[in-house]
Design a binder for these strands. Structure first.
Ligand code: MG
Length: 229
DNA sequence: GCGACAG
DNA sequence: ATCTTGTCGC
């Protein structure tokens, strides 16, 4: 994963994309869900990053467990190749969670990707877990703006195939770009993301994971450290 | 060749 | 993603 050329990375995606499954393969009644996210150092310019994971009880959003790990940033950000940058540390942080979740929410695209293998799908295939990709903006595909009410949605398409759902999770607020990662159907993906959204735009798992990896910045600042994550 | 482009 | 304060709108 470290010394990969862009061409090699794309070839790997084409191979792994064949292993993506879009049929629901997770408990019908969700008990726990997991949110994952990463943050990067800037001020320290040390090229380091942090991956975080939170395990929540579905519905109450009570935090049952959380974990984070720091490491070297292995790959630059290249649109379409985000997984080669964040996957290594995300896999590591998953190992640090004592329990497994029924479903995983990833900050990024699932199959709504040029080669149908965004970060959520890549993680799902490699770790063999059900995942949903929740992106805050569009990577690829075309769509009609969904109505302004909460729950409004419209298909995200690439030519003749539907690769995701543009979902409005809050009234009059920019919609989310939801797509199946692995072992989750197109319909279940948007339905479950909405089910995890309360007063905020982001689903609870993603929101809490983001808070976890971002609150560290405050911790370091308070300790007088020059590194910002 | 030009513009788009998850985080 | 990160750098940053105030400001506009529901
Ligand atoms: Mg992120």
């Amino acid at each position: 994963m470290e010394g990969l050329t862009i061409a090699e990375a794309k070839a790997i995606q084409q191979l792994l994309a064949k292993r993506v499954r879009l049929d629901d393969d997770f408990p019908e009644t969700l008990s726990t869900v997991c949110g994952l996210d990463c943050s990067y150092s800037r001020r320290g310019k040390d090229g380091r990053m942090i991956a975080g994971a939170v395990l929540l009880r579905f519905g109450s959003w009570e935090r049952l467990e959380s974990a984070f790990v720091e490491g070297e940033t292995p790959f630059p950000y290249v649109p379409g190749l985000l997984s080669f940058r964040e996957l290594p540390l995300l896999l590591e942080v998953l190992r640090r969670l004592e329990r497994k979740a029924d479903l995983y929410f990833v900050d990024g695209a699932g199959i709504a990707h040029p080669r149908r293998l965004g970060l959520a799908s890549h993680l799902g295939v490699v770790a063999d877990i059900p995942t949903i990709g929740v992106a805050k903006s569009r990577l690829c595909g075309s769509f009609d703006e969904p109505a302004s009410s909460r729950g409004a949605e419209s298909p995200l398409r690439d030519h003749d195939e539907t690769i995701g759902t543009v979902l409005r999770t809050r009234e009059a607020v920019k919609p989310l770009f939801v797509s199946p990662g692995q072992k989750v159907s197109l319909e279940s993906a948007s339905r479950l993301v909405l089910a995890c959204c309360g007063r905020y735009r982001l689903p609870e798992p993603t929101r809490q994971a983001h808070r976890l990896v971002t609150e560290r910045r405050v911790m370091w600042k308070e300790k007088g450290h020059d590194a910002t994550y």
